[in-house]
Simulated assay, not measured.
Amino acid sequence: MESDLIYSDKLVDVDDKGIRLKRYYFPLGQAKFVKFQDIFKMERRQPTLANGKWRYWGSGDFVTWFPLDWNRSGRDFIFFIKMSTQSTRIGFTVEDSKAFIEAIESKGIRIEDS
């Protein structure tokens, strides 16, 4: 329900329960929902070749999965989620990093700088 959203853009939605990563699954682009309670660790990194700046969709190392974002190379941060319920890490970007960080931190999730 849209009234429950505390952050939303073309790439992600954040509500009271978690983060919806839009265009996550290949090839049809269905969304994946990550519950806050399943987040073990969350980081933000500057985009570099080594951490996925040019990875538009999928995985290059079988460790990190990136949902679709054709503009990832121009974003200011790449966020990474390590979940307690799966071994694959999720790397994703948002359109407004400052607003996204405020929304996540308002839910008690700490974002570490790496």
Rank of each mutant, 00 (worst) to 15 (best):
R20T: 15
T93K: 06
Y24R: 01
R89G: 02
M83H: 14
Y25T: 13
F79W: 06
F79I: 02
K32F: 13
W57M: 05
G52F: 03
D96I: 03
G18M: 09
V14D: 00
R44K: 15
I111E: 02
W54V: 04
D76Y: 05
W57R: 01
L11E: 01
L49K: 12
S87T: 14
K22M: 10
S97Y: 10
G60S: 08
Q37R: 15
K32V: 10
F66H: 08
K53E: 10
V12K: 03
I39M: 07
E102I: 07
S106A: 15
W70V: 07
G108C: 04
M42V: 09
R20G: 03
T64G: 00
Q86F: 13
K32R: 15
F79D: 00
G29C: 09
D61E: 02
E105I: 01
F62Y: 06
K82Y: 14
F33A: 09
K53S: 08
I81E: 00
R72E: 05
I81S: 04
G74R: 12
L68A: 08
F80Y: 15
S84L: 11
G74K: 11
F62E: 11
R55L: 07
R45Y: 08
D9S: 08
T64N: 04
R23C: 09
V34Y: 10
N51C: 09
K35W: 09
F40W: 07
G29W: 07
R23F: 10
I81W: 07
Y25D: 09
T85I: 15
W54M: 10
Y24Q: 03
F62D: 11
T48M: 14
I39T: 06
D16M: 12
S8K: 07
I104Y: 04
I111P: 00
L68D: 00
V12F: 02
K17F: 11
I104D: 00
V94N: 01
K17T: 14
D76V: 11
R89P: 00
K35I: 10
K41P: 04
I109K: 02
V12L: 09
Y56C: 05
G58S: 04
E112G: 05
N71H: 13
F77V: 04
D96M: 08
Y25Q: 11
N71E: 14
S106K: 12
I19M: 11
A103Y: 04
D9G: 06
I111T: 06
I90D: 00
S73K: 04
A103C: 06
F40C: 06
K10I: 04
S84Q: 13
R110Q: 15
F26S: 02
D9W: 08
R20Y: 12
V12D: 02
